[in-house]
Simulated assay, not measured.
Amino acid sequence: MRGCVYLVGAGCGRADLITLRGLRLLQCCDVVVYDDLIDRHLLEAAPQAAERLYVGKRLGRHSTPQEEISRLLVKKALEGKVVVRLKGGDPFVFGRGGEEMEALLSAGIPCEEVPGITSAVAIPAAVGIPVTHRGVSRSFHVITGHTFDERGEPAGGWGSLANLEGTLVFLMGLANLEGIADGLLSAGKRAETPAAVISSGMGPRPVAVRAPLAQLAEKTRAAELKAPAIILVGPTAALDFSATVEHPLSGVRVGVTGTAGLRQKLQELLTGLGAVVETAAGLTVEELPLPLRLEDLCAGRSPWLVFTSANGVNIFFRKARREGLDLRRLAA
């Protein structure tokens, strides 16, 4: 029996930025294979019995090689599992989703990509920078910031980027910030070109340094920004369309406890009021042996079936499904 794999983009930042389709797949999967930059509340949306496998990668600290991740996806699908490969941003925008798709197709595994909001657009927007704006920038270009050639240049040289109109968005390039700025300046980009570096864009409080291109590296290092970060170069970096809606709990962090279902309800209410919600302590419900044969309930001798909690209801009907009980036999 073969399962299938969904490459799901989780979007950037809060858990509620995932698409409805991605969330529905997550809620009924057997296995979740997830990365670093994922809101942990998303993992609670998966079924309690689902297997959760961490394969995160960061620059200089690779938890799991890409080839091993691809083999893991194939292995779990061959076990007959429905697998959600949960990736930050969009799987096909520097997320190596294409490599995983190739491996799955080669192995004959049914697979599908579910788009997510790419960090190239979402993180600048989080600090009020649009990547396009009428009359200012009619295009944007997304460039990897850490895979240059042996001369420290992108494919086609710095001139190919410096001569582009619109907004340049460099992902994963903080370690090469000086080289990026110097390369663009040496290729003719104007020193006063607006630019920005955004750090912690996945978190509740992203930090942005804005400066002319010639001063960007110096001001960013002085601010001690940390990776992961996004670099923007172009006229829209001078704009500030930051959100002005005020929420009652903006800036407040709230720790919640309880079962996944209870925490999810609290999270939805609190985040709607602007709070940042963290799991302070979690409870899980464990199914104990039931001293009752479900078959005995079908004889009609007991006119009542009483549940003392929502968890009891869930456990009873899971057991009924496992045992193949036709619920119509409980009519009496």
Score class of each variant (00 low, 15 high):
Met202Glu: 14
Phe148Ser: 03
Ala275Lys: 11
Ala162Phe: 03
Met1Phe: 03
Glu44Met: 13
Ile18Tyr: 07
Ile18Arg: 05
Ala238Thr: 05
Gly274Ser: 06
Thr19Val: 04
Ser200Gln: 14
His133Leu: 11
Leu161Asn: 07
Trp304Lys: 12
Ala195Glu: 05
Cys12Gln: 14
Glu295Thr: 10
Asn314Met: 14
Glu113Lys: 10
Ala275Ser: 11
Glu278Lys: 12
Ser63His: 12
Ile230His: 08
Val197Pro: 10
Thr147Lys: 14
Lys76Ala: 03
Lys81His: 10
Glu192Pro: 01
Val82Gln: 15
Leu325Phe: 04
Glu278Thr: 13
Val256Asn: 06
Gly324Arg: 11
Ala196Lys: 10
Leu20Pro: 01
Leu292Cys: 03
Pro65His: 07
Ala310Met: 10
Ala332Thr: 09
Gly179Thr: 01
Val276His: 14
Lys265Gly: 14
Gln66Ser: 12
Pro204Ser: 12
Thr147Gly: 00
Ile109His: 05
Ile109Asn: 10
Ala103Arg: 04
Arg96Pro: 03
Leu37Val: 02
Arg2Thr: 13
Arg61Cys: 07
Pro47Ile: 11
Asp296His: 08
Glu286Leu: 12
Ile180Met: 00
Val209Leu: 10
Gly282Pro: 02
Gln267Cys: 14
Met202His: 14
Val252Asp: 05
Ser137Arg: 02
Gly95Met: 06
Val93Leu: 03
Leu105Cys: 07
Gly56Phe: 09
Gly152Thr: 10
Val8Met: 06
Arg221Val: 00
Val209Glu: 10
Thr193Gln: 08
Glu79Gln: 15
Val276Gln: 15
Leu105Met: 09
Val93Asp: 01
Ala214Cys: 13
